[in-house]
Design a protein around this nucleic acid. Sequence first.
DNA 1: AAATTTGTTAAAAATTTATTTAACGTTTAG
DNA 2: CTAAACGTTAAATAAATTTTTAACAAATTT
Lengths: 183, 183
Amino acid sequence: MSESTEKSRNKIEDAKDKVIGAIAETMDLYGVTPAAANLYATMYFKDQMTLDEMRTELGMSKPSMSTSVRKLQEIEMVKKTFTRGSRKHTYVAEKNFFRSFMVFYCQMWEREVKMNMEAIEEAQEDFINVIKDSTSTPEVVAEAKKFYDQLEESKTYYHWLEHLVASIRSGKIFEFLPKDQQD
Amino acid sequence: MSESTEKSRNKIEDAKDKVIGAIAETMDLYGVTPAAANLYATMYFKDQMTLDEMRTELGMSKPSMSTSVRKLQEIEMVKKTFTRGSRKHTYVAEKNFFRSFMVFYCQMWEREVKMNMEAIEEAQEDFINVIKDSTSTPEVVAEAKKFYDQLEESKTYYHWLEHLVASIRSGKIFEFLPKDQQD
DNA sequence: AAATTTGTTAAAAATTTATTTAACGTTTAG
DNA sequence: CTAAACGTTAAATAAATTTTTAACAAATTT
């Protein structure tokens, strides 16, 4: 290979690394380990990869790659692909950020809604019992009412979050905010 | 205090604790420490709190509370309030989840857009240089073009994210998804 | 059927993050 | 002006997470 081709290839690698670094750094905030973040960012510029290629490319252990790939599959940022003729599993990165966004946030928000709404429903029942209890003092009843109302009010937010998730899943949000809209 | 009042008070505390636990658990995913998550969830049911009250209520050290409160102020989930006559600083939890949602996600997404767009712009310049370079082989040029186009395509997503942030900040999103809409 | 390849699980080590203890500076009350 | 109260910073400790090494199981090839 000529010297200038070598230089050009290096430039390409450097350019990719800038983007890989940025993606990996922001992915940290998405609850994945540094290894998984680096892996996804690396795969973003690859057609497909095997576990061994990942290990070589990132200089990390195979179990680390195995775990990272699984985590990435969970949030659907990586998919397993069938490659005939090869015993090794091959994986492909989801390159459409819209799809990653949808899966990740919908998953996250639904978990939040479910967990908090369940707690709220239970707590509200408890508050009602205190309010209904004839032995409760007016002071205690007032307090229970106050908290009950606070929780009731907060449900508005969780309902809204559910609607947001639904509109993302259905794609309706893109009628309101088109994908290709210019500044 | 009578025995039954005591029981009612306990019921109220138990009910609150259910919600506190749920909020704290989901907040972990928002990039705050367990201490900060517990603190916010606790403050959610309080009018206002001082550092010493926090320490007593959560059974943690004062510096831990100090750090947690600062982190929560950063994402605007807690505000400092002036209480005349008291030397101690007092803090109030933001109880409107819509506002917390806005501040947190807009902050997060803007950071992501900024960081990744900067890297993309730099990388694209590099790719253009390789493409323009007369000593580059056709093979290398083709690769540079491919990556350039991939990044160009991804910008659609970041632009969309910016529009999403803008529509949340301006409140326009609530025209599309009203806050009080029923299922 | 033995040996090799591939991927996963489990335990150990290493790293990072969170929390506490201790020390410090600033303010206010006595 | 001294002493106590309050909050923060810095260093040390503790806890949790991430990664690796080692062992294992399944599948495939020879």
